[in-house]
Design a protein around this nucleic acid. Structure first.
Length: 907
RNA sequence: GCGCAUUUAGCUCAGCUGGUUAGAGCACUUCAUUUACACUGAAGGGGUCGGGGGUUCGAAUCCCUCAAUGCGCACCA
């Protein structure tokens, strides 16, 4: 063994090279191959990124969160597992590929290529992106178990999807129904309510009457749909209209047939809004459709088709027109017949398909739905009940099966969302996805489940059968992610061991899409919750608070950042200053700060290694020989304790901050400087210091490893060539004479009492540096320091050398007390009088000014405390300890004021 | 319209269940240059904690209210 030499300049790019491979080769990403006795599991199912593109900053952020968590847990001795995967992202991917093909000149890819060929194109796209994305996840350093890599559209996951469908179909929870759904004309597919983006637009609201003799005026922003009206709803409490309820009116407004308008009562109609009456178009409004379901006798007349054009039922004047053309025409007709009453421009929200970007039409059609309100056979509750239970009383009322949501406030948001949940439309008319495993017999009309290709109808044996053309909503497969990745429906070892998973992180923007569906699927199919803890995070925004987006051109490519600053720096910068559930701003200076820290850590190591002959692992804490040693160990315990507590709460930012304070402020800026003095005394002293330095460095490497795994692993490898840092045990705060500290307040107390001695040295040094700077004492200028140390005299004498070196002053006279020296710059620190004798070079006026200002500040402070203590109510009501503390503060401040006054007069 | 979040130094954010002379990083000012590290070190300036009211001996912290900003949900007749 010999000295370790580190490169002078830390170059993240070359330094990080090869380390991921080393981790991967070790097999430790796989919990089954981790050494030691590990009884507890910690499992994260990685939210699978869509195969539509390459990783963006949001992915880097999520990977940082997951990997910090899993590396910490692995070091805590748990069987730590991240299951990686990718998502075929049905609509999103097909929409993307179709767009690409259109750019290549294929106008209508579905028609021109046909199902098989188009699927082939999408598959190629998906596969190539999948490979890119896996490479990128590795670049981020995420320690996931690649032997368990999953894909929502691979064989095992498809099997899970089919089995889920079969179960729900058999239980009658999946049904085919005729209902109003959101239809994307451009995508020629349904989309769920969650797949809509809302956009505020100006539009005109038209008020009109169906006919001269129709008693109630109606308002609408979509006149063309009125050709399919079958009712008018009024509030039963509305005196103006209530007596019309039940009456029928026949009106001819130009549709194919005269309309029969029934007046119905509905409590939801707002008497005071608009005309106080709603024209009901069951076919083209979800709300109106619900009224129709309650009053089927009113009938339903679809007037818009899947192509977004008017149907024959709208009348021969309108058939084939676009909705906008029909609108104009109908409004003109109303005006012509004096039925048009008024127009008003308003702002309202329109729903657009988030993937195809066109305004969705509400159309009634046959689709597949999951019934969330129906009682599950044999369970006595509905899917909705299950979704609610999991976050309230626990699954099946089992307290151990409650999902904890961080931060808590999303708990209520989730519940109110569940309350408003409608049946979930799961069929899509796109081709990229799991095909609905249902077959129709055209001979006997039997409908049956089959995941396999079928030859004959099981009922009539006829061969005239066909599979449903539709595919499943992508969230149907994503919902099964926590257990499909573990091998379900097979009863695998993995499933037994690792489900429910432990921790799940997700952005609040997919809270309802995804979390709710995972809970639904898992509680239904496995009779268990999918995970124990959900950590909700916000989104990253740019410096101005804008979302990162391609169209704004404000994107930061994580791979470019890694290229420039290294993976460690990006990981650390992503989690710093971020709290759960909140958005945060992200910009280059943040990355620079983290890069600087990595560099600092590198240089700390370089410095320590430079003095050590035989670097070795120091397993047990060495003995503290000096005051500084005692102090730094105390600070280390403080950092370990706080970082650990923060990590247990998934407060990654706070943990990093504690570690940063210790590493940079305590260790590098103070302790290392002290060591330069203390280790020069003798060989014994220097050996003792080297041991302590190595020990602390090793603790620091362990503590930082989850955050900045590369640089820490690299430095560790210089000391220990055999073992990887990634599986070292997480440090524990040492037990001291008070026993294990229970909380931060205890520890803060300890920090102030037990190690007050070295803190005094710090204060004295800081004060001397301040006096030097204030009086512009340049290097080499003679300056004598006199300190009246009182009872601390002996102690300060033992620290004299440190004080002089760190404050870079040459002569220091320590005495218990004495006559105030004249004409010195002076200060008071913790009751100690400090004088800096500049041999007449002092600017008396400036010094007076400074001291006067200081006295004024102390005065202010004293006044505040005096007022408090003069307040009888404070003295009698506040706890005795608080009062005592105030008195103590007052005594100290008064003493300080007194001495400052003496100093100013001795000028 | 309903709900949630945010509002603390020029900027980005900490400050937990009320007792600190309100903190950090960046930026700023001054100083230091054959130093483990300029991706550095030292010293410093800068805040009546969004406004108003209340509870309390005591409020950045709890309650009410208003405002601004952001985000959900509903409405969109």
């Amino acid at each position: 063994m010999s000295k370790i030499e580190l490169e002078k300049i830390y170059d993240a790019k070359s330094a990080e090279k090869g380390i991921y491979e080393k981790w991967e080769d070790s097999g430790f990403f796989n919990p089954d191959k981790l050494p030691g006795n590990r009884s507890e599991n910690f499992v994260i199912a990685m939210p699978p990124p869509n195969v539509t593109g390459i990783l963006h900053l949001g992915h880097a952020y999520e990977n940082a969160l997951m990997d910090i968590q899993i590396r910490y847990q692995r070091m805590q001795g748990k069987k730590a597992l991240i299951i990686p995967g990718t998502d075929h992202a049905a609509v999103a991917t097909q929409a993307r590929v179709e767009d690409n093909l259109k750019k290549e000149g294929i106008k209508n890819p579905r028609q021109e290529l046909g199902r098989e060929k188009l699927l082939e194109k999408i598959r190629e796209f998906a596969e190539s992106h999948k490979a890119i994305m896996i490479g990128q996840i590795k670049k981020l350093g995420t320690s996931c178990d690649w032997s368990r890599l999953a894909y929502t559209f691979d064989e095992p996951r498809s099997k899970a999807v089919n089995e889920l469908f079969r179960m729900m179909f058999a239980d009658g929870l999946i049904y085919r129904g005729y209902r109003v759904v959101n239809w994307s004309v451009k995508g020629q597919s349904t989309c769920s309510d969650d797949e809509l983006e809302y956009e505020t637009r100006k539009t005109i609201v038209y008020t009109f009457k169906y006919s001269d003799n129709f008693p109630i005026p109606i308002a609408t922003t979509r006149p063309e749909t009125k050709l399919g009206d079958t009712a008018v709803a009024v509030n039963p409490d509305d005196e103006r209209y209530a007596h019309f309820i039940g009456q029928k009116f026949t009106v001819d407004i130009g549709a194919a047939n005269p309309l029969t308008i029934t007046i119905i009562g509905d409590k939801n109609v707002d008497i005071n809004y608009g005309t106080g009456a709603v024209g009901v178009t069951p076919a083209h409004s979800q709300i109106d459709f619900e009224m129709y379901q309650k009053n089927k006798e009113i009938g339903i007349i679809p007037v818009i088709g899947k192509d977004g054009k008017m149907l024959a039922a709208a009348g021969k004047d309108y058939e084939g027109l676009t909705t906008l053309e029909a609108r104009e025409k109908f409004v003109a007709w109303l005006k012509e017949h004096n039925l048009h009453i008024s127009e008003e421009e308003i702002e309202h929200n329109i729903g657009k398909s988030d993937r195809f970007k066109d305004v969705v039409e509400a159309l009634p059609m046959e689709q597949w739905f999951v019934d969330v309100n129906k009682e599950i056979p044999g369970r006595g509750k509905s899917l909705k009940d299950l979704m609610r239970e999991a976050v309230t009383i626990g699954h099946n009322g089992d307290k151990h099966k409650i999902i904890d949501i961080t931060p808590e406030r999303f708990h209520d948001t989730y519940l109110s969302w569940i309350d408003n949940l409608r049946d979930w439309c799961i069929s899509r008319q796109i081709w990229w996805g799991h095909r609905i495993p249902v077959w129709y017999c055209d001979e006997c009309n039997e409908i049956f489940y089959s995941a396999e290709k079928h030859e004959a109808c099981p009922k009539c044996q006829g061969h005239n059968i066909r599979q449903d053309e539709d595919t499943l909503d992508t969230w149907f497969s994503s919902g099964a992610w926590t257990f499909s990745t573990l091998g379900w429906p097979d009863k695998t070892e993995d499933l037994k061991k690792f489900h429910p998973t432990t921790w799940m992180q997700m952005g609040y923007e997919i809270l309802f899409f995804w979390m709710a569906r995972m809970i639904l699927m898992s509680t239904y199919a496995l009779d268990d919750i999918p995970f124990k803890n959900v950590y909700i995070h916000g989104i990253l925004r740019d410096k101005n608070g804008k979302k990162f987006s391609k169209s704004l051109g404000n994107g930061l490519d994580p791979l470019e950042v890694i290229e420039k600053y290294g993976t460690d720096a990006i990981r650390l910068s992503l989690i710093k200053g971020v709290s759960a559930g909140n958005d945060s701003r992200y910009y280059e200076e943040k990355i620079e700060g983290s890069r600087n820290f990595v560099n600092k850590l590198w240089n700390i190591s370089r410095f320590i290694f430079s003095s050590i002959e035989n670097p070795t692992i120091i397993a047990a804490r060495p003995e503290a020989k000096t005051e500084a040693d005692k102090w730094i160990f105390n600070q280390l315990d403080f950092a370990i304790f706080n970082a650990t507590q923060s990590l247990e709460k998934s407060d990654f930012s706070a943990a990093a901050e504690f570690l940063n304070d210790f590493t940079w402020n305590d260790f590098a800026d103070w302790y290392l400087e002290v060591c330069k003095v203390e280790s020069q005394k003798s060989k014994v002293d220097s050996d003792s210091k080297d041991e302590i330095l190595q020990y602390i460095l090793q603790q620091i490497l362990k503590l930082w490893h989850p955050f900045i795994p590369y640089v820490t692993e690299l430095i560790w490898s210089k000391i220990d060539q055999k073992n990887l840092l990634m599986i070292e045990a997480w440090p524990k705060a040492e037990e001291n004479k008070h026993g294990i500290v229970e909380n931060i307040k205890d520890l803060l107390h300890l920090a102030k009492t037990d190690v007050v001695d070295f803190s005094l040295v710090k204060e004295v040094v800081a004060s001397l540096r301040n006096l030097r700077a204030e009086n512009k004492v340049e290097a080499g200028v003679f300056a004598r320091v006199i300190i009246f140390a009182g009872s601390k005299l002996t102690f300060l004498q033992s620290q004299k050398e440190i004080i002089m070196k760190l404050s870079r002053l040459e002569k220091l006279d320590l005495m218990e007390s004495g006559e105030k020296p004249k004409g010195c710059a002076a200060n008071i620190v913790s009751g100690l009088e400090i004088y800096l004798d500049l041999a007449g070079l002092i600017d008396i006026e400036a010094e007076k000014k400074r001291l006067t200002k200081e006295i004024a500040e102390v005065d202010q402070y004293i006044k505040g405390i005096e007022m408090k203590l003069a307040n009888e109510e404070f003295v009698s009501n506040a706890p005795a300890a608080v009062v005592a503390k105030e008195k103590e503060k007052l005594a100290e401040a008064s003493g300080r004021k007194h001495k400052l006054n003496e100093q100013i007069s001795s000028l």
